[in-house]
Amino acid sequence: MTTLLGEYVLPAGEPVWTSTLVDVLAMFDVEEKAARQALARTAAEGWLSPDRVGRRVRWQLTPPGRRLLAEGAERIYGFGSGDRHWDGRWLVLLVSVPESMRDLRHKLRTRLNWAGFGSPTAGVWVTPHPGAEADAKLILDELDLSTQAMSFLANYGALGQERDMVTSAWNLSEVADRYESFIDEFAALDPRTPDAILRAQTLLVHEWRRFPFLDPQLPNELLPPRWSGTRATAVFNDKHLHWREPAQQRWTELASS
């Protein structure tokens, strides 16, 4: 549902009928009941508001929904294509949450992972992107942990190996495997019909939007040789550009029928 809203409803800027969302989700073997439940949950979260027209209902994005989807789209579509230049500095964040506060620990871990941080040891979070300090502060403020945290900017010292720290902080082998699976699924995919292109484009974006949670976008100096993320990014950008216009056109046809 989120992928459909971000890829088609947001750029169209028009309300969408319940039947359109149900019919498109059926292309992915989502049953009507499950589709309507997903729609209800999305509305309950404040992303959509209903507008009844006779016996039919159409949905429009709320201002918070548009903002969240726009922010997500900016990160998803630009992911993997940024500048990898690095000055060698690390942002180090020290924050400790008691084991007894498991829910808070989970929220902190999830949100810092999303912001690109890795944890080489308990209570220590690192990223080669010093600019992420603003994101870290926002996260810690919202979780009421700022008074318990400390941050530093530093270069790696003489003890130990920098790559060993990277290996401890992030599971790059797992990320590489996910990239390889993405390449295997989409590199040779060549849909020909309008519905097939719409389905392929939606699956492409749906799978790609997972990678900002998985890949910390490390500088080239810290990546394994022949990093599969480079090729996966090229596959995504090429396919998304190639399928975008016909997929959008098919969505418009379905939404207006």
Rank of each mutant, 00 (worst) to 15 (best):
S19D: 15
L21F: 14
P98G: 06
T42M: 15
G229P: 09
E245A: 15
R192T: 13
W59A: 10
R84I: 00
V53Y: 06
L218R: 01
R102V: 01
R66P: 08
N113L: 09
W170T: 00
V97G: 05
L203D: 11
E74I: 02
R209W: 08
A176Y: 09
F28Y: 10
G54P: 05
D215T: 05
A176W: 04
G229V: 06
R192V: 13
G6L: 08
R55K: 10
A44T: 10
S228P: 15
D184I: 06
A196V: 02
S173R: 14
D83G: 07
D103H: 11
K33D: 11
T121P: 00
H206D: 14
L241A: 15
F28W: 04
F152G: 00
L69F: 10
P64S: 05
L48Q: 11
K137V: 02
S49D: 02
S151E: 00
I76E: 13
D215K: 08
A149R: 12
L4C: 02
H206M: 06
A12Q: 08
W125F: 14
A200P: 12
D215N: 10
D190T: 13
G229L: 09
G6H: 01
T2H: 15
L172S: 01
Y179Q: 05
D87G: 11
R192P: 04
G80V: 03
L25H: 05
M27W: 15
Y8C: 11
K107D: 13
L159E: 14
K239Y: 11
L61C: 07
V57W: 08
L5P: 06
T62E: 07
N237Y: 05
T121A: 06
W243M: 05
R89C: 02
L198G: 04
P219M: 05
A122N: 12
L143Y: 02
W170H: 14
L4G: 04
D23K: 12
E7C: 07
D164L: 04
V97K: 00
L189V: 00
R209E: 15
R210P: 01
G131A: 06
A169C: 05
R105L: 04
D103S: 09
L254H: 00
V95R: 03
D215H: 08
D23T: 05
L172R: 06
W208Y: 15
Q148E: 14
W17Y: 09
E7N: 02
R84D: 14
S181F: 09
